[in-house]
Design a binder for these strands. Sequence first.
DNA 1: CGCGTTATTGATTAGTCTCAATTCAGGTGG
DNA 2: CCACCTGAATTGAGACTAATCAATAACGCG
Lengths: 239, 239
Amino acid sequence: MLQLATSRPGAVPESGRCTDCAVRASAICGSLDVPGLDELSRMGRKVHLRPGQTLLWEGDESVLVGNVLEGMLKLSTVTGDGREQIVGIVFPSDFIGRPFGKDSHHSVTALTEARVCVFRRGAFDDFAGAHSGIEAALLRRTLDELDRARRWMLLLGRMSATERVASLLLEMIDRLGDTPGAPISLPLSRQQMGDLLGLAIETVSRTMTRFEREGLIDLPGGRRVVLRDRPGLERIAAG
Amino acid sequence: MLQLATSRPGAVPESGRCTDCAVRASAICGSLDVPGLDELSRMGRKVHLRPGQTLLWEGDESVLVGNVLEGMLKLSTVTGDGREQIVGIVFPSDFIGRPFGKDSHHSVTALTEARVCVFRRGAFDDFAGAHSGIEAALLRRTLDELDRARRWMLLLGRMSATERVASLLLEMIDRLGDTPGAPISLPLSRQQMGDLLGLAIETVSRTMTRFEREGLIDLPGGRRVVLRDRPGLERIAAG
DNA sequence: CGCGTTATTGATTAGTCTCAATTCAGGTGG
DNA sequence: CCACCTGAATTGAGACTAATCAATAACGCG
């Protein structure tokens, strides 16, 4: 339930310039011209995170925002007595942090090795105010995020354990799977899958092995999953 | 589970001008100067909804967006077999609809008598593109909505029925209660409370009467609730 | 190869849902 | 104004899902 590695990430001031950034085209920076990009470039720094490291803490003042360059991170909240809910997973080119707000409502923690391009929130807020393209891009991204969150609310509020696990598998396979039929490596432990689905770890495990027995998936071990019967999973996930 | 009244709302072209709109200061229109407001004014029309009437349907093409002028509406999604989840409640000055998107991911249905100022989505998108103040205001609003949705995900994924009902009561009392200690009238049926909390109607009902027995609230009948022991409810809601 | 962690499997329990029967409230028509 | 009617809310009994507790097995790493 608690984080494993909770040390503060080290700031690694890389020399990379925004103009040759891998996610430039798809991140919100894509809306900027070269001078704007240079200005932003001087404001940001790159941070490297190891799996389990937390970049932002729930309840802390919102000091940082940024873009994911590489890797995957989870956004999570915790109840008073320590039950955790993952409220989002972010991928390269996704935006993280809470601009225009006093404090951050969820923690941001690396699931894999990750690189993030971060800015001080205040400076970013000012920059965004002066470059309406950034605000426009961020608005579109936030609207998509909100749609995703609300879809997940249906899963959490109304779906059975079976339906939830099937939905997650499909989502992960779609977001991670390059080659159809090839095994994909889940970046999530069973515990994290539970925290995402609102289920106990044992329920996730049981459901996965049941799916394997029923020929829907293969579990060759080591967090790998092979999709065997997509229509079957889709039928289950549909409710 | 299904809507009662599902007829299309009538478009009531009121003569009211944006400049003396009740929600102008708090809605996203607040960011506009008088010429901008006039332009927007010509694009919009006012729609009146009765309780149960649906303005936008899940899955439909996103044709309308708008601002709530009066009343309360629910945003909801449904599983394949008809289980419903309410993913949001909107109040006066809140924005509804999905700008910059092909289709709407949830239905918008009036809970009370309501008045909404609506725009064709395409026209609004163009207008927003030309007036960055609108996009900025909408961004802030959407970020707040996203925070709210994620907080609700914790409730749906990790909280017990008791904790969920206590949380809802506190939220409703805070959002609706003018005079502390006075009874507030919930605009939600027990079924709708269930759809919001991811619970069966009977569970909501049982939990409410238990709270009454324990002296936390009074239920004078007719969807009215009186808060008797806020700290007690808060202790329960905290988890 | 052994240790610590993570995952699986099993037995039991608790919490919530479902089904069913009243009761209650609000609106209608006599 | 009151009796009736209808949908909503409450209450009860039982079934079932998923959580919890506990033990074992598999994995990853030094």
